[in-house]
Design a protein around this nucleic acid. Structure first.
Length: 554
RNA sequence: CGGGGUGUGGCGCAGCCUGGUAGCGCACCUGCUUUGGGAGCAGGGGGCCGGAGGUUCAAAUCCUCUCACCCCGACCA
């Protein structure tokens, strides 16, 4: 049992969680908000929800889910629901209380708060370094895409039509051609590439952009699925299939490396089954991760688009033999959804736990004092400690808030997932030492003393150790919850128990759909790493040469 | 589209049946005491009660209409 649980229990401070209530706040906040007047000179965008064709989505009719305290305020002093009690509610409250994000006045949209954005900036930095190291450059393409562009690639338009936001009025005038708010940028970038690329000497083109995109989702959830989300989308053009395939795989490797070494999130890199691939792609790759409730999350994707978009947009080049050829293109993206993965992979019942390499603050210093005299000496030491660590390249926050007890600060920064806490009180000042408390190790077991002199070394070592153990813990969790059933009955049981299933597979899309219908499980990926030999397909009973990972997904 | 439910300070709610000074908890502000695991007391600020119309001397409360959101179902997959 955690110290603070005992503490609160003994003081009777634990309060019952407010009863679940319906969503209301976004609507209320929106009400009465003045809209820009038509023709007032600004752009008046009428967003239409286009449901030209339904598309498969998560079950929308299951279970009570009318909760969401759309505010940080009323839950402040309470503890989170435990992950076991209600994982969904644990997640919702954690996102708000860790100060990562808030609900926006528009249904399904989110505000990324400074702390959440700082985390995203660190993710951006880690990825952008890797993009640059593999020869990519950044650019920016328009938010608006002529609607006709989307329609040029058949599968693409079929895939995205149901979730497009469309602008039909600008400057008070009906537009001659509606503009789509980009759901992704293959089409408008394809259009540009068609003009830029003339010769094999122009290839490859390796461009990335950091932006936000809009997809009109019905069921939304902070970070995991919102109408607008932030991401990067890389778009490349190549002379051959092999080059494009190599690029696609290279970027999947980049995502894998990022997930494992920066986010401490173990992932299974693999290919998507045809039914799950990107609309318009030849084939898609994914990194799949297991969340704390054992459900799968697609954490990043890389697509080999073949010549589909090149043909739709006439992206052509003259080869060495003066022959006109269509390019081979790729695209790859990783979004703020990854923040959801970090939360659900690492978080515990006290709140968020951030991997040190990505944490906005790697260390928080909490000063402890009673008298003014103690306050002065403690803060002086705390400032000195902070300076030492900052000089050593550690991201540090000194919590100087007055009028908030140290106990409150401990809980607050635990909620926000800071990997390492330093406590400095009068006794520590006297001994010229500090208390280190690891976020990944609850209670006294995670606490130790360290001398102020040479503290940076101890802190750096602790951060590295935390990073490592976070990965190991997540990896053992995924392993422990991955089954290898031999029969379909065993398979159904394992799926019912929420496990990932690693099974031999030679089935087709029809069999896959039937399994999804019966078990709610989908092929998360066909792992790149395959065993030798062959086995019996779980879906058909026929011989199979490859294994697939099945699981229930977000 | 059908059925049900809810709209009252930032959040969660009570008040409505039986009309008569808008209230409680949390959050916020000030002060004092506290501070090594979610502090206490005192004082204070903030709400045209979703909107419109009606009944009445008087409407959060009664009547009519309307809007928004939530749940269930249907449609779509």
């Amino acid at each position: 049992m955690r110290d603070d649980h005992e503490h609160r229990d003994s003081r009777g401070v634990v309060r019952p969680r407010p009863a679940p209530r319906g969503h209301r706040q976004p609507a209320r906040a929106a009400r009465g908000r003045p809209l820009p007047a038509a023709g007032a000179g600004g752009l008046v965008a009428r967003l239409q929800q286009r449901r030209l064709r339904g598309r498969p989505r998560a079950d929308v009719s299951r279970g009570p889910r009318a909760r969401s305290p759309h505010s940080r305020a009323h839950v402040m002093a309470d503890s989170l629901p435990t992950r076991q009690q209600d994982f969904n509610e644990w997640y919702n409250q954690l996102v708000l209380r860790a100060d990562l994000a808030d609900y926006a006045p528009v249904r399904g949209c989110m505000i990324v708060k400074p702390y959440g954005w700082a985390l995203w900036e660190n993710i951006q930095g880690a990825l952008d370094r890797r993009f640059k190291a593999t020869g990519h450059v950044n650019a920016a393409f328009p938010l608006f895409i002529p609607k006709s562009f989307l329609e040029k690639e058949k599968q693409h338009v079929e895939g995205f039509s149901p979730e497009l936001a469309v602008v039909t009025i600008g400057g008070g005038e009906e537009l001659t051609e509606p503009l789509v708010v980009r759901p992704t940028s293959e089409t408008i970038i394809g259009h540009a590439y068609a003009q830029w690329i003339k010769s094999y000497r122009d290839l490859p083109v390796l461009i990335n952009q950091w932006n936000s995109v809009v997809r009109w989702e019905l069921r939304t959830k902070l970070f995991l699925r919102t109408l607008e989300f932030w991401w990067q989308e890389g778009h490349t053009a190549h002379a051959t299939y092999d080059e494009a395939e190599a690029e696609t795989r290279q970027m999947l490797d980049v995502y894998t490396d990022f997930a494992v070494n920066e986010a401490a999130v173990p992932v299974i890199p693999g290919a998507k089954s045809p039914s799950e691939k990107f609309a318009g792609a030849l084939h898609s790759y994914t990194i799949e991760a297991m969340m704390g409730d054992k459900r799968a999350l697609q954490a990043g994707t890389s697509h080999n688009l073949g010549q589909n978009f090149a043909k739709a947009f006439n992206i052509q080049y003259l080869d060495r033999d003066n022959q006109l050829q269509h390019c081979w293109t790729t695209s790859w993206g990783l979004s703020t959804r990854f923040i959801g993965a970090i939360i659900m992979v690492h978080g515990d019942d006290q709140g968020l736990i951030l991997p040190p390499r990505l944490a906005p603050y790697q260390v928080v210093v909490v000063p402890i004092y009673r008298s003014d005299a103690e306050r002065a000496s403690v803060l002086e030491t705390a400032a000195r400690v902070k300076t030492q660590l900052v000089t050593g390249g550690v991201r540090v926050r000194l919590d100087e808030r007055d009028g908030v007890t140290p106990g409150f600060k401990f809980n607050d920064w635990e909620m926000r997932g800071v990997p390492l806490r330093i406590e400095i009180g009068p006794r520590d000042v006297e001994k010229r030492s500090v208390v280190l408390a690891r976020r990944d190790t609850p209670g006294k077991a995670g606490k130790s003393f360290a001398p102020e002199e040479g503290l940076t070394g101890a802190v750096t070592a602790a951060l590295e150790s935390i990073q490592k153990s976070m990965y190991e813990r997540a990896q053992s969790f995924m392993r422990a919850n991955t089954a290898e059933p031999r029969t379909y009955d065993e398979f159904k049981q394992a799926i019912e128990a929420g496990l990932f299933c690693r099974v031999w597979w030679s089935g087709d899309g029809e069999r896959e759909a039937a399994i999804k219908e019966e078990t709610k499980a989908t092929i998360r990926c066909i792992p790149l790493e395959q065993p030798d030999g062959e086995g019996v397909c779980i879906g058909t009973g026929r011989a199979a040469k490859q294994v697939a990972i099945f699981g229930r997904a977000y």
